[in-house]
Design a binder for these strands. Structure first.
Length: 492
RNA sequence: CGGGAGGUAGUUCAGCCCGGUAGAAUACCUGGUUUGGGACCAGGGGGUCGCAGGUUCGAAUCCUGUCCUCCCGACCA
């Protein structure tokens, strides 16, 4: 057991906080609900961001940047969207401070510097972007527009948690415009697939692809698609969303195009996003009581080398050998750090890099040099193995791949074990209380029943899985007829 | 936003009830010995006690306000 980390069994929430703070991913800040993302956490985000960015570009998207501020009149144009976010908007009302005449050295908001129109700090950018697209689009030849932006957004949350829900967070938001409904739906589904592929192949996080029920839908969308992941405490977490917006924003912002028949039509829209919340998902999906466990493909550091020596002579011999190993690893595209800091002993370093979730540790001492081997330890299973220095780079390369696959398999096995069918209300409640995870059950399709179930159990419908098997059945609560099962869970 | 707990050295915390020279462990700095799972010895530096008022001869301690954090709840496309 690691020093100072609360175990999952003792207090899951505290374990999560300990990992974020002691793993040096982030810190609390002087600003309510806002966090500082520390270099190690930001390096992780950069790796995730860079890979997603590549995938967006491979699917034909370009990056752009739109303003942080949205004039209130634009923000309120699409009514449902505005209403949905109204309760959590930060609003700029003034543009100047001045010295406080009654309190030397202090500043007050200058009452004479009131803005004619308040500016909403974007909780999302549909409004400002569709106001802009109006100017960009005239004919079908201007379509599609496939734009993404990497940005920060602000949502004034009442209760915050590091990475999972903070007042300000980093994300990407894709906003596309299309000439047909079919093309927009295709785009929505394509981007959901990009998210799912990223989560599964890079984060080693298995996800369910699905559609939200109307009450869980994005404000202003016709349909919201999502990827849902399961955390180790049996709670679900929405890891990404992709929205088919229909013509709602086109109508609100009057964005029309001339089609080939020379007739004016409203444009079809999508938007899609993932955020730094993914880091929270990553932590809760894989890590253990000794610290973080990061998938090799996005870990800021893949390999750490720790020397074990007595005296300068041994140290120099080890240094020389490590230099060779590092060159080989780097030539294979593997990130590696040699920690020969003499202030900390090997045992301290072992614990430290386990806390940080570095996938592979190589320990090398005088004894190893004699035998032409090194001790290779993998973070996910904590197994240690003596490996020949000849061709060690290939071994490590393969090991990193094994770890990546193992993390995915382990998370997938957990999800499958914790996805259960329920056919009676008693069973349904019992599963949610005692086992957790996804519960697959029939639902009569009404918002009233969905709300009643949430009221009674705190579980929500996470999604209706894509390609869901049709099956006649009776609603778990009302007994009314149902044509398919949906996935329920308590969620973050 | 409601209920509860908390904020004192970089960190974890004691001191507060009952006002009177700010403490420990750990981390840090210097020197030395060490190094295969969180080393040891010796010496040393470091805190306007979250912030702002008030009571008092005197406030970390009592009172008021305020900011931030944690837990529970409400809220959360």
């Amino acid at each position: 057991m690691s020093k100072g980390i609360t175990s999952r069994a003792e207090d899951y929430s505290q374990w999560y906080n300990d990992l974020i703070l002691k793993g040096a991913l982030a810190d609390y800040s002087a600003v309510r609900g806002c966090m500082v993302i520390k270099p190690y956490g930001y390096a992780l985000w950069e790796n995730m961001r860079d890979q997603l960015d590549r995938m967006f570009k491979e699917t034909g998207h370009q990056n752009a940047y739109f303003p942080l501020f949205v004039p209130k009149s634009l923000f309120e144009a699409e009514e449902k969207n505005a209403e949905g976010f109204a309760k959590e908007c930060a609003v700029v009302t003034h543009y100047r401070l001045k010295a406080d005449a009654n309190n030397k050295g202090k500043l007050i908001v200058d009452p004479e510097a009131k803005l004619e129109e308040e500016l909403v700090v974007r909780p999302t950018s549909e409004a400002i972007i569709w106001n802009t697209y109006k100017d960009w689009i005239q004919s079908y030849r201007d379509l599609p527009i496939l734009v993404n932006q990497w940005a920060n957004v602000v949502r004034w949350e009442m209760r915050t948690r590091l990475f999972l829900r903070t007042a300000e967070f980093l994300w990407q938001e894709g906003h596309t415009a299309h000439s047909t409904k079919e093309e927009a739906i295709e785009e929505t589904e394509k981007m959901l697939d990009v998210y799912a592929t990223f989560a599964e192949q890079y984060m080693a996080l298995p996800v369910i692809r699905g559609v939200k029920t109307p009450s869980e839908r994005f404000a202003g969308a016709e349909d919201t698609y999502c990827i849902e992941a399961l955390m180790q405490d049996g709670k679900a977490l929405q890891a990404g969303t992709s929205h088919f917006l229909g013509q709602n924003f086109a109508k609100a912002f009057d964005v029309k195009f001339l089609n080939k028949e020379n007739k004016l039509e409203y444009v079809w829209a999508t938007s899609w996003g993932v955020s730094t919340r993914l880091i929270g998902a990553l932590v809760m999906a894989h890590s253990d009581d000794d610290g973080l466990i990061l998938p090799p493909r996005i870990a800021p550091l893949q390999v750490v080398i720790v020397p074990i020596y007595k005296g300068d002579e041994q140290k120099q011999q080890i240094d020389a050998k490590v230099k060779e190993i590092m060159q080989q690893l780097k030539a294979n595209g593997i990130s590696v750090k040699y920690d020969d800091n003499d202030n900390n002993r090997p045992g301290w370093k072992f614990a430290e890099y386990e806390l940080k979730g570095v996938p592979v540790r190589i320990a090398i001492g005088a004894r190893d040099l004699q035998n032409n081997v090194a001790e290779v330890a993998r973070r996910d299973t904590k197994e240690k193995q003596s490996v020949s220095l000849d061709g060690i780079a290939n071994h490590i390369k393969q090991l990193l791949e094994d770890i990546q696959q193992n993390l995915y398999k382990k998370a997938l096995a957990y999800r499958e074990e914790h996805t259960t069918r329920a056919d009676s209300w008693e069973e349904f409640e019992k599963l949610l209380d005692e086992k957790g995870g996804f519960v697959s059950a029939h639902w009569d399709g009404t918002a009233e029943t969905e709300e009643a179930i949430k009221e009674k159990t705190k579980a929500t419908i996470r999604c209706i899985p894509l390609n869901n098997e049709k099956e006649e059945g009776k609603c778990i609560l009302t007994g009314k007829p149902s044509s398919q099962r949906v996935l329920f869970a308590r969620a973050y």
